[in-house]
């Protein structure tokens, strides 16, 4: 187990280092730079621009910059935003919490929505109800996030007037963005859940449980739940990526502060330090979630916990 742990953590660190390097090289390869974009409009001469570059350390050879940036990242120093003129850490501190809150709420909402859909699709009353619910996830997947956001604002804010988007309460502000992100993410979750529940219900051990006298609710609680939910765990990593992507678009549509808005501005201004930090932080979160899933799985599934031993 100790060896397995070391192996997995090692792999995770390797992925992070590779991400950092790749992001660094790609961002350096971009034509133009932030200095040009910010100061050209002030009408500075090329000589003055060169001086500014030297002040930012942008004149050093690439490998020196790389090692310097790598060392700084390892100590938690993400450099300065050229555009805002403040440390990147400060920008992150301002924007990260709201994005985290939005993502967490969206993930919770998506899980709940998926669970409701899956239960309706597998156990819900009439056959036609189940068939109808089963077509919902494909519809959800097909909807683009930006379009859904705009439609939700149209319907709930402008036409129905239920949710104010001009000076809303803090909780009110989040309702539509959360729904916008949650809907497309709930779809693959629901599809996998439906498939798993169908498969588990057809397992002979469910028949055995019913032959013991178990009610439907009992079978669901003690036999279906864990067996159907376990494989969903492996999707968590992939869905996190979608969550992040969804947050960026949604924050832009709803004009919310957050990592999405920050990313958008940084891209527009070629604010390399900010972009580098965002890429690495996203990758770190992604890697951490997948690592957590890998380590959690053997705890939840006894078949993996004690090796592949079969008597």
């Amino acid at each position: 187990m100790g060896r397995y742990l070391a192996q997995r953590v090692g792999q995770a660190l390797l992925v992070l280092a590779a991400t950092f390097t790749l992001a660094f090289l790609l961002l350096q390869a971009l034509p133009g730079d932030a200095v040009l974009i910010k100061f050209l409009e002030l009408g500075l001469t090329p000589e003055q621009l060169a001086d500014i570059r030297i002040a930012y350390g942008a004149d050093a050879p690439l490998w020196q910059q790389y090692l310097h940036a790598m060392g700084a990242f390892l100590t938690g120093n993400f450099g300065y935003s050229i555009r805002a003129g403040v440390p990147v850490t400060q920008l992150l501190a301002e924007n990260l919490p709201s994005t985290l809150l939005l993502s967490a709420l969206a993930f919770a909402a998506a899980s709940l929505l998926a669970l409701v859909l899956a239960l309706l699709a597998t156990l819900g009353g009439q056959g036609w109800v189940r068939a109808l619910v089963r077509s919902v996830p494909s519809l959800f997947i097909a909807i683009p996030v930006f379009w859904l956001g705009i439609m939700l604002i149209q319907v709930f804010s402008f036409q129905l007037g239920w949710i104010s988007i001009i000076s809303p309460e803090p909780w009110e502000e989040l309702i539509l963005p959360v729904a916008t992100i949650a809907v497309p993410i709930s779809a693959p979750l629901a599809q996998v859940l439906i498939r798993n529940i169908d498969a588990v219900l057809a397992e002979p051990f469910v028949t055995v449980a019913r032959a013991k006298g178990a009610s439907h609710a009992w079978v669901l609680r003690w036999h279906v739940a864990r067996n159907a939910l376990l494989p969903v765990l492996t999707m968590a990593g992939v869905l996190f990526g979608e969550l992040l992507g969804g947050a960026v678009v949604t924050e832009a549509v709803f004009g919310l502060n957050g990592l999405g808005g920050l990313t958008q501005q940084a891209v527009a201004n070629q604010d390399v330090a900010v972009l580098q930090a965002i890429v690495v932080i996203s990758a770190a979160a992604f890697v951490a979630i997948n690592l957590l899933v890998d380590l959690l799985y053997p705890v939840l599934d006894p078949r993996l916990a004690r090796g592949r031993r079969t008597a």
């Binding site: 002979p204 032959a211 013991k212 006298g213 003690w222």
Partner: peptide
């Protein structure tokens, strides 16, 4: 359901898939 397990019970065909793995 009240009868099953108590008055009537089942021994299934395939012991490998008839027990909950978790």
């Amino acid at each position: 359901a009240a009868l099953r397990g108590a008055r009537l019970s089942l021994i299934p065909q395939d012991p490998v898939t008839s027990l909950n793995p978790v």
